[in-house]
Design a protein around this nucleic acid. Structure first.
Lengths: 135, 135
DNA sequence: TATTCAAATTAGAATTATTCTAATTAAAGA
DNA sequence: TCTTTAATTAGAATAATTCTAATTTGAATA
């Protein structure tokens, strides 16, 4: 999602477009490492010197509620944030902790296999393994 | 996994078979609702009146490390525990929060679709939706 | 069976992640 | 520019989990 698209959606939803929201959104757009709230806090410090942790959490929750960012539960006890709103799954390298995005289309459709009692709104696959870059 | 199997594995790994470990393991075996650490704490209180929170966490971590229980990250900020060690996925009812187990075999194999750069050790699918029991 | 000792348990303090509170500031419409 | 309401802020509060240091206990051995 682009910075402009996020701004448009905030306005559509009657939410104010503030520097804090845009700096944090822009950071998430450019950062592909699925940062935690604390990663965001550290990263935006230089551009938002007065920004408190409360604002980081408020803003992340606002962006998630507005549907422009998603929160992912990977490791127990940590919440990570992702501005990639294309449906996708995650591949966690168990050696390094690096989380790779796996496009939705790359994995065959699963919804049919569950049967009619389960009405699926969404599903999220987390793969664990090792990534070998062809360096 | 049965109580006896867990006892055998603890011994195999050089871990002591203590009342705390067996009561907590037995609770997880019989409880199908994917309890949190605090749920476990409350549930075993009557059988282990002196059991502290530290022991709950120590024991759960020990059982997870021993491979007889698994920790699942579903909602952000909460860790849930599951003694069902048959490979399976989870279906979270977004209305009620109830987590249903979905047998691994019910979902078609996905490992092939990712390509050779990703060496998959494990994967975990979390479905979100609504469960309609045929009452 | 008693002794021994490393491992397990314990209470409570410490830490980490997150939310709440109440006062202050600022965005955007009139 | 003024006003209003939402957003931001610092720091306290809460929740989840880990750590610490003292105590207890399981089980190997004498």
């Amino acid at each position: 999602m682009t910075s402009e698209a996020i701004k448009r959606i905030l306005i559509e939803k009657g939410l104010k477009v503030t520097p804090q929201r845009m700096v944090i959104a822009d950071y998430l757009i450019h950062e592909k490492t699925h940062p935690t709230a604390d990663d965001v806090f550290e990263a935006v410090k230089s551009r938002l010197p007065a920004c408190s942790r409360a604002t980081i959490y408020n803003t992340l929750n606002t962006l998630v509620d507005a549907g422009v960012v998603s929160a992912i539960a990977t490791e127990p006890g940590k919440t990570r944030y992702d501005a990639n709103m294309h449906p996708h799954h995650h591949f966690i390298d168990t050696q390094t902790g690096v989380i790779h995005d796996i496009p939705w289309e790359q994995v065959s459709q699963l919804c049919e296999s569950l049967g009619s009692a389960f009405k699926i709104h969404d599903y999220q696959i987390t793969f664990f393994g090792e990534y070998q870059s062809k360096s």
